[in-house]
Simulated scan of single mutants.
Amino acid sequence: MKTDSVKLDRYDRHILEILQQEGGLSNLELAERVGLSPSPCSRRVQKLEEAGIIRGRAVLLDSKALGLGLTVMIQISMDRHTPERFEKFEAAIRGFEEVQQCYLITGQSADYLLKVAVPDMDHYQAFLLNKITRIEGVSGVHSSFVMRKVVDATALPLNYL
C-alpha cells in the first residue's frame, strides 16, 4: 500500500502520537488510550504498518548510562561525486556500529553528515583513524563534539497532517 493513499483521521494520528512516545504498548493498552476496541485498533496499526508509515518499534537507550559519553557530528567530504563512490562509502558506514545516523547532504562543503556515539576521545580517535579515513574516497573530515543535547527527539511532528 502506498503512503499517499492512506487518509489519516484523528484516531490514526492519536495512535501515531502514542506509539512514538510508548512503542512498547500492547494493542489492548493502545486501544484503551485511543478510545477504540482492540480489533479496530489492531487493524489501524496494521494498515499504518502496511502503508510504511510505521516502520517499526524501538527501545530508546541512554548513551551516557551505557558508557557512550561522547557524541560527535562528523562532516565528510568525498574526492569524487560518482554513484559508485557514494555506494561504497554508504555500504562501509552501515557496517560501523558507532554510526547512529548518516545523511547525504547539500549546502555545505561536506557530502555526508554523521552522528557517532563512542565512549571517549581515545575511542573516537581509533574510530576515525581505523575506520573512517580508511574508506576509499574520503578526502576530508571535520569533527564537532556535542557538549550538551538540547533537543534529542525521535518523534515526528504530526500537527501538519
Results as ranks from 00 to 15, higher is better:
M1K: 08
M1S: 15
M1L: 08
K2P: 07
S5Y: 02
S5C: 01
K7G: 07
L8N: 12
L8P: 11
D9P: 05
R10D: 15
R10Y: 08
R10V: 10
Y11E: 14
Y11W: 07
D12N: 12
D12Q: 06
H14F: 01
L16A: 10
L16H: 10
E17M: 07
I18E: 03
Q20W: 07
Q21P: 00
Q21V: 11
G23A: 13
G23F: 06
G24N: 07
L25R: 12
N27P: 00
N27I: 15
E29I: 01
L30M: 04
A31C: 03
E32S: 11
E32P: 00
R33T: 01
V34C: 05
V34N: 04
G35M: 03
G35L: 02
G35P: 05
L36T: 08
S37D: 11
P38I: 12
P40Q: 01
P40H: 02
R43N: 06
R44S: 06
R44A: 06
R44V: 09
V45S: 01
Q46A: 12
K47G: 01
E49A: 06
E49K: 15
G52E: 03
G52Y: 04
I54W: 04
V59R: 12
V59T: 13
L61F: 15
D62W: 02
D62L: 08
S63L: 05
S63Y: 03
S63A: 15
G67T: 05
G67K: 05
L68P: 06
G69R: 14
L70N: 03
L70F: 00
T71H: 04
T71N: 06
V72K: 01
V72P: 02
I74W: 00
I76S: 03
S77E: 13
S77P: 00
D79Q: 12
H81W: 12
H81P: 00
H81L: 14
T82Q: 09
P83H: 06
P83W: 04
E84S: 14
R85F: 02
R85W: 00
E87D: 14
E87V: 01
F89T: 14
E90N: 12
E90Y: 01
A91V: 06
A91Q: 14
A92Q: 13
F96Q: 10
E98Y: 05
V99L: 10
V99F: 05
Q100E: 15
Q101T: 13
Q101V: 13
L104A: 14
L104Y: 11
T106H: 12
T106L: 09
G107D: 07
Q108Y: 11
S109Q: 13
A110P: 07
D111W: 04
L113Q: 13
L114K: 10
V116T: 07
A117D: 15
V118Q: 04
D120A: 09
D120C: 06
D122V: 08
Q125H: 06
A126S: 13
A126T: 14
L128V: 02
L129N: 13
N130K: 14
K131E: 10
R134W: 00
I135E: 01
V138P: 09
S139I: 02
S139M: 07
G140E: 08
G140F: 02
V141A: 04
H142M: 09
S143A: 15
S143F: 02
S144A: 15
S144C: 12
F145P: 07
V146D: 05
V146W: 02
M147W: 06
M147E: 08
R148D: 10
K149F: 04
A153C: 03
T154L: 09
T154E: 10
A155H: 10
L158E: 10
L158P: 09
L161E: 14
